[in-house]
Amino acid sequence: MHNDTWDAATPTAAPSPPPRRRWVVVLLAVLLVLTMGAAVAAGLVAADQRDAAAAWQERATALERQRDEVAAERAAVAEQLDAAVAALDTSEADVASLEERVRTLAEEKARAEDTATTVSVERDVFIELSERVTAATSALDSCVTRLFELQESSVAAFNAAAAGDQVDVDALNRRAGEVRGFCDEARTAAAQAEAAADELRRS
């Protein structure tokens, strides 16, 4: 019995799928492979990005810690700097005060030296004046002594002349001349001492 229906028991050649359908299958397979490749690649990229993100996160944490440390360090340094500036101000004030004291003492010392120098000069002047006055006084004293001696000699000569004795008038005159010269020198010394005293008085 034959009919148009297909008999499965009858071995016949299987009909090959149409070329278009095969092409679709290939395309789907390729798409599947590509999709899987893309998925793998995306997975790898995601892993890399995760690692990078973790590294950045770690970096950010480290920087935040570093920032806090630097801020603390800066605050400590600022505090130390303030303390150093305060200490420096105090030291400067102390130094200025001490220097002012040094200047004052230096001025006192210099003035004392001025006075000592002046006194020294005055002492030298007084010593010189004293020496002149002493010399003039001594010369005048000698002058007076010699005048007394001349006076005595003159009186003796008058008495001798009155008694009719011989008197050496020339000798008496020579002696008077010597005494006059001696007394002139004494007067000159006295005048010099007086001039020195006047000069001292003027200065």
């Binding site: 990229v45 890399d48 690692d51 990078a52 590294a55 950045w56 770690e58 970096r59 920087l63």
Partner: peptide, 18 residues
């Protein structure tokens, strides 16, 4: 560009004095 992973720098940060 999409797949580039930029690693963070390792050197310490420096800055001028405030």
């Amino acid at each position: 560009l999409l797949t580039a992973c930029v690693e963070p720098p390792t050197e310490p940060l420096t800055a001028p004095l405030p």
